[in-house]
């Protein structure tokens, strides 16, 4: 039990030993979720449906700035369906966070994230219209912050973690207000600059991790709010999903095999 506690703390608290890289990896499946999808390119009505997801995260301390910078990779897949639409969005985020320890027991990471998303919302009842789907393709840069706190519950270590990411500026490929896919195929892809005036998004990930003998279980509540108003087409996607998965902590010795930290 003591090893688990030290292991998790070391990822974020103590600088790693020279020539070793602390790595945290987590994969979760979204098992219970709700999605509200509104996209005026497809329909003028708002629909609520079910959301599923796949979330994978990897984070490790880098050698930058005396090993105070953590690098994070995030992969996220959201799949939702309602009465008339289906949605699939695949995202990748790459972030660099500076570690702060202003309070005893707390770790804070703050930095930036480069993020890309590709996906679409498909109209299941398009009735021969030339707007059967809206494609979402964009790249953005934003802010990201993590807060982690280690506690014990009846001698069982429990880690609480919260991460929020907010994109700030980006480039969108987006159709014009009434531009059909046929017309788009005849012209260059329309690229639009996006920022807070037309693009608001926030992802909140609240996690609880409980290490057991053979695995660390992670339970997360993921809230994603995504709103754009580009070329007068409005999109609003709000999802709330419960994710369940496993995490692990390990070190990687360059040139040597991976050493599971719990050994």
């Amino acid at each position: 039990m003591r090893k688990y506690l030290i292991g998790m703390l070391l990822v974020f608290v103590l600088p790693p030993a020279a020539a070793q890289e602390m790595t945290y990896q987590s994969t979760m499946l979204g098992v219970m979720g709700q999605a509200a999808i509104y996209d005026t390119y497809i329909t003028s009505s708002n629909y609520a449906g079910t959301n599923f997801g796949l979330f994978h995260e990897q984070m490790r301390m880098t050698g930058l700035n005396e090993r105070s910078i953590a690098m994070q990779h995030l992969f996220n897949l959201n799949v939702a369906v309602d009465d008339i639409q289906s949605m699939a969005m695949l995202e990748y985020g790459w972030g660099l966070h500076h570690r702060f320890e202003p309070l005893n027991g707390f770790q804070f990471f703050f930095g930036g994230q480069a993020h890309g998303m590709i996906g679409g919302i498909y109209n299941l009842s398009s009735n021969g219209g030339n707007n059967p789907a809206t494609i979402k393709l964009h790249f953005d840069l934003g802010l990201s912050g993590i807060a982690a706190y280690q506690l014990e519950v009846k001698k069982q270590p429990v880690k609480l973690r919260y991460q929020a990411t907010i994109p700030a500026v980006g480039l969108f490929w987006a159709p014009g207000f009434g531009q059909s896919l046929f017309e788009i195929s005849l012209s260059k892809y329309p690229i639009t600059f996006a920022s807070f005036h037309n693009y608001l998004s926030m992802r909140n990930v609240l996690s609880v991790e409980v290490p057991f003998k053979y695995a660390t279980v992670r339970l997360s509540y993921v809230n994603w709010m995504y709103e754009t108003r580009i070329n007068d087409n409005e999109t609003r996607i709000h999802t709330n999903t419960l994710f369940f998965g496993l995490s692990k902590y390990f070190t990687v010795q360059p040139g040597r095999s991976v050493k599971q930290f719990m050994e």
Partner: peptide, 19 residues
């Protein structure tokens, strides 16, 4: 007019010339 489609709150579909 290239038609687009949309839907009403009651689920009825509407098609209209858009382009």
């Amino acid at each position: 007019g290239l038609p687009f489609s949309s839907s009403l709150p009651n689920g009825w579909g509407v098609r209209f010339s858009a382009s």
